[in-house]
Amino acid sequence: MRTLVLALTAATLTIPAMPTPASAHGSSYHGKTWRDSQGRLRCKRPNGTTGLIVGAAGGALIGRAIDTRGERATGTILGAAAGALVGREVERSRKRCR
């Protein structure tokens, strides 16, 4: 029962973090922008490193809590990998420049 509750909790924390499609009208980016030599609009966007680290740490903790049999290393490693991917994608999708 505990494993089921932890799995559902992890799933509910992940679903709101899914990226949403950007709107076609306007831009939500309010950071530094500039024009390159061809006249295209460029902007400074996060590369996702912070989200990767935080996601990996959180995913490792959740994976360790869910995997309660044996050494628990498998759950920790898989949780860290999944958390890192989700955390990086969430951070990179926050700011749009178009």
Rank of each mutant, 00 (worst) to 15 (best):
R2G: 09
R2K: 15
R2Y: 08
R2T: 13
R2P: 01
R2F: 14
T3P: 00
T3L: 03
T3R: 14
L4R: 13
V5G: 14
V5Q: 07
V5Y: 09
L6I: 05
L6V: 12
A7W: 12
A7S: 15
A7Y: 10
L8F: 08
L8G: 15
L8Y: 12
L8W: 12
T9H: 01
T9Y: 02
A10I: 02
A10E: 07
A11E: 06
A11M: 15
T12V: 03
T12Y: 11
T12M: 06
L13G: 15
L13V: 11
I15A: 15
I15M: 10
I15E: 09
P16R: 05
P16C: 04
P16G: 07
A17H: 09
A17T: 10
M18S: 14
P19E: 05
T20Y: 05
T20N: 07
P21A: 12
P21Y: 11
A22Y: 10
A22I: 04
A22R: 13
A22L: 03
A22T: 06
S23F: 09
S23L: 06
S23M: 06
S23H: 14
A24R: 15
A24Q: 14
A24D: 12
A24E: 13
H25E: 12
G26I: 05
G26T: 09
G26R: 10
S27Y: 04
S28R: 13
S28F: 03
S28Q: 14
Y29Q: 06
Y29I: 02
H30A: 15
H30D: 15
H30G: 04
H30Q: 14
G31K: 03
T33L: 01
W34A: 09
R35N: 11
R35V: 00
D36P: 05
D36I: 00
D36V: 00
S37V: 01
S37K: 02
S37L: 00
S37Q: 01
Q38L: 00
G39W: 05
G39E: 06
R40M: 00
L41Q: 13
R42N: 09
R42G: 01
R42T: 00
C43G: 15
C43I: 01
K44T: 07
K44N: 13
P46A: 13
P46K: 12
G48K: 01
G48T: 04
G48Y: 00
T49M: 01
T49R: 04
T49C: 00
T49N: 03
T50D: 11
T50A: 09
T50Y: 12
T50N: 07
G51F: 04
G51Y: 05
G51D: 04
L52G: 09
L52W: 07
L52C: 08
L52S: 11
I53P: 14
I53F: 07
V54G: 10
V54P: 05
V54T: 08
A57M: 15
A57E: 11
A57L: 13
A57Y: 10
A57K: 06
A57G: 14
G58R: 02
G58E: 09
G58H: 06
G59H: 04
G59M: 03
G59C: 07
A60D: 09
A60H: 11
L61P: 02
L61S: 10
L61N: 11
L61R: 10
L61Y: 14
I62P: 01
G63N: 07
G63A: 03
R64A: 09
R64Q: 06
R64F: 12
A65K: 02
A65T: 10
A65Y: 04
A65E: 10
A65M: 09
I66T: 11
D67S: 02
